[in-house]
């Protein structure tokens, strides 16, 4: 069964179709969550919560073709909320460290620069450069001309570059 048919059935309220779709995209959701939250436990909870939220608002899906992007956006919104709400605490070694993935590559620069972007800019960069969503699709989802999206994407990249450059200014006094 094609994805689009599944989405249409899910919108009509067919629970099996909804579950099939979520299982199809659970890994993509998880990786988005990891990119924001950095540890397994939080990312799994995020997947749980996003499933819950998606089910509750499945009727609001307007473009079945963009269902995956719709899910990813719920996930990004959720993660941004969690990051804002997270309180004083010492975090455990993150999953990237545990699995030895960041040993040879320092993430810090990109991560801190991403934290400095607005939610919107970060969302845009994530959709384009993490999920490979086409500008055409982003434009359709936000009901915004493609040219405008391109301009904003450039602005977001410029903000990211500014984040890198600012880091270079650290000096001894």
């Amino acid at each position: 069964m094609s994805e689009e048919i599944l989405v249409k059935k899910a919108i009509k309220g067919e629970q099996e179709a909804f579950l099939a779709l979520l299982h199809l995209y659970e890994e993509a959701l998880y990786r988005t969550a990891i990119s924001y939250l950095k540890n397994e436990g939080d990312a799994l909870e995020a997947v749980q919560e996003v499933t819950y939220r998606a089910y509750r608002s499945i009727k609001k899906v307007k473009q079945p073709a963009y269902f995956k992007t719709w899910l990813i956006r719920i996930m990004m919104n959720y993660c941004q909320d969690v990051l804002k709400k997270s309180r004083r605490e010492v975090l455990e070694e993150t999953i990237l460290m545990k699995q030895g993935i960041t040993e040879d590559f320092t993430f810090l620069e990109v991560e801190e620069a991403l934290l400095n972007l607005s939610d919107y800019e970060r969302e845009l960069l994530h959709l384009k450069y993490f999920e490979d969503v086409k500008i055409k699709e982003i434009a359709a989802m936000w009901n915004t001309p493609e040219g405008t999206i391109k301009t904003r994407l450039h602005k977001a990249l410029r903000a990211l570059r500014a984040g890198f450059e600012e880091k270079g200014e650290v000096k001894r006094v």
Partner: peptide
């Protein structure tokens, strides 16, 4: 740099079981 970051995150191992049950319990 964004691509390198995406690849690193793509390498993380995922427990299919845990993911499956996360979706299930959210549902």
């Amino acid at each position: 740099k964004l691509e390198q970051r995406r690849k690193s995150i793509g390498q993380i191992e995922v427990s299919k079981d845990k993911l499956h049950s996360a979706v299930q319990s959210g549902f």
